Simulated scan of single mutants.
Amino acid sequence: MLNKNYKVLVDRPVGYQDSFGTIYPINYGYIPGLLAGDGEEQDAYIISDSVNGPLSIFKGKLAAIIHRRDDVEDKFVITSQDETLTKEDIQEATHFLEQYFDSWIELI
Score class of each variant (00 low, 15 high):
Val10Tyr: 01
Val10Arg: 03
Val10Gly: 02
Asp11Glu: 12
Asp11Ile: 00
Asp11Gln: 06
Asp11Trp: 03
Pro13Asn: 14
Val14Arg: 14
Val14Lys: 13
Val14Tyr: 08
Val14Met: 15
Val14Asn: 07
Gly15Phe: 12
Gly15Arg: 13
Tyr16Trp: 14
Tyr16Glu: 12
Tyr16Met: 03
Tyr16Phe: 15
Gln17Cys: 07
Gln17Ser: 13
Asp18Arg: 02
Asp18Leu: 04
Asp18Ser: 06
Ser19Asn: 11
Phe20Gln: 13
Phe20Trp: 15
Gly21Glu: 03
Thr22Gly: 00
Thr22Phe: 13
Ile23Pro: 00
Ile23Gln: 05
Ile23Trp: 09
Pro25Arg: 10
Pro25Asn: 09
Pro25Met: 12
Pro25His: 06
Ile26Asp: 03
Asn27Ser: 08
Asn27Gly: 08
Tyr28Ser: 05
Gly29Met: 08
Gly29Phe: 02
Gly29Ile: 02
Ile31Lys: 03
Pro32Met: 02
Gly33Ser: 07
Leu34Gly: 05
Leu34Asn: 08
Leu34Ile: 13
Leu34Asp: 06
Leu35Arg: 13
Leu35Phe: 14
Leu35Ile: 15
Ala36Leu: 10
Gly37Ser: 05
Gly37Thr: 14
Gly37Tyr: 11
Gly37Phe: 14
Asp38Tyr: 07
Asp38Ala: 06
Gly39Met: 12
Gly39Phe: 08
Glu40Cys: 02
Glu40Gly: 02
Glu41Val: 01
Glu41Arg: 00
Glu41Phe: 03
Gln42Gly: 04
Gln42Arg: 14
Gln42His: 09
Asp43Val: 04
Ala44Leu: 01
Ala44Cys: 07
Ala44Ser: 10
Tyr45Lys: 08
Tyr45Arg: 07
Tyr45Ser: 07
Ile46Leu: 10
Ile47Glu: 06
Ser48Phe: 01
Ser48Cys: 05
Val51Pro: 07
Val51Phe: 11
Asn52Met: 10
Asn52Ile: 06
Asn52Ala: 07
Gly53Phe: 04
Gly53Asn: 08
Gly53Gln: 12
Pro54Val: 04
Pro54Phe: 03
Leu55Ile: 06
Leu55Glu: 09
Leu55Thr: 06
Ser56Thr: 02
Phe58Val: 04
Phe58His: 01
Lys59Arg: 12
Lys59Trp: 00
Lys59Thr: 09
Lys59Glu: 13
Lys59Pro: 00
Gly60Thr: 03
Gly60Asp: 04
Gly60Asn: 04
Gly60Arg: 02
Gly60Val: 00
Gly60Met: 01
Leu62Lys: 02
Leu62Ile: 14
Leu62Phe: 01
Leu62Met: 10
Ala63Thr: 00
Ala64Arg: 15
Ile65Asn: 01
Ile66Met: 13
Ile66Asp: 01
His67Lys: 15
His67Gln: 10
Arg69Tyr: 10
Arg69Thr: 11
Asp70Gly: 11
Asp70Gln: 09
Asp71His: 12
Asp71Val: 09
Val72Phe: 05
